[in-house]
Design a protein around this nucleic acid. Structure first.
Lengths: 190, 190
DNA sequence: AAATTCATGTAAAGAGTTACATGATTTC
DNA sequence: GAAATCATGTAACTCTTTACATGAATTT
């Protein structure tokens, strides 16, 4: 008995977005929650399996049992028409500004409590991590940018491209900012 | 009986960072968790009061009861030497790359499911919200940028300045990216 | 034969939000 | 006199992570 009145969580819409692109087993959803959707949303399998059951109960996804490994039956999930409708409505719905929750900046906000040399070292380490992430984004973008459809707004690859571009721009900005902070720290040393 | 072995949460370090700058009542900590620390970390009073009690039990803060309004005694909290040491150690400690959790980008990842016109409208709304946030950051930076100490890495205002600068750069990048996305959507319409 | 991957679940605990609760002081 | 602010707490719920649990199929 589907319950269309039950509210869908952000995680639910993340999963609907995945299944709208391609049907998957719960296990595959968990894998796909790393690349590329993991660049802006993550979830573990322990959160995904119950959420799939809720989406199923709400009639937003459906499943068929297929043969596969494991002690329990393997299920392949597919988004329903109701699921597509709910996803599209959520995408264009109201969204109030999200509070930022950034552990790196929280640390740097207390950087005045440590020696400038230790501070510079910290910023260098953050910088290196941002550079690695940027490289991954660039590779991912290169992989899709020649595919047909990347410039068609109704193609999922279009959305993959613009979100990756956003990640690339924000990491480049973070790198520039890190270099600037190091320079500010160094300027004060003399 | 302080328990220095108890691990301190991220919220705990956020509060220690606040109290390292200036002693405060729990109520004031809750107020200060909006501006400017609220730009990268937030918490409600219902989370702050219990955390202050934990920090107190761990010996990282201490309090004195003062006269004030309200049915319960008003407490003024101050960071201890142990608290300062713990904060500084946390600032320069290991930090693995933080997973991004961005609801806006999650939405845009499914933007291919809606009409381009609706997509453009969504991006315009996000853009306007980023612009408002940018303006707040710029005001906040202007307020502190003439203060003595903003260029001294051991002064809390130095940390306020570099974190605000980071917020400004990231919002400017977000605005440019929004304009770029709108152009990409418009280019496909013709 | 051992290790890894496929595959799905539950339990417990921590983090965070919303709602409930109380009452004094200050401002309009 | 009413409303807002000061001030501290608890309860219930949601979201997220970590850990426990099982076992077949595939790879080394």
């Amino acid at each position: 008995m589907p319950d269309p009145a039950a509210p869908v969580s952000n995680l639910g819409f993340a999963i609907l977005g995945l299944l709208a692109r391609r049907e998957s087993t719960g296990y595959e959803v968990a894998q796909r929650m790393r690349q590329p959707i993991g660049y802006f949303w993550t979830a573990r399998h322990s959160q995904i399996y119950p959420e799939l059951n809720r989406l199923d109960a709400a009639g937003l996804v459906e499943h068929e049992v297929i043969e596969g490994a494991g002690p329990r039956p393997t299920k392949r999930y597919r988004i329903t028409e109701a699921g597509r409708t709910a996803l599209a409505a959520w995408v264009v719905g109201d969204l109030d500004p999200q509070p930022v929750r950034d552990l790196e900046i929280l640390r740097l906000w207390s950087i005045w409590t440590v020696e400038p040399a230790a501070a510079e070292d910290l910023v260098s380490r953050l910088e290196a991590a941002h550079r690695r992430t940027l490289d991954r984004y660039l590779e991912e973008l290169a992989e899709i940018s020649d595919s047909p459809g990347v410039r068609d707004p109704s193609n999922p690859l279009f959305a993959s491209r613009i979100t990756l571009e956003g990640g690339i721009r924000s990491r480049r900005t973070a790198l520039e900012w890190c270099a600037w902070v190091r320079a500010e720290l160094a300027a004060a040393e003399r």
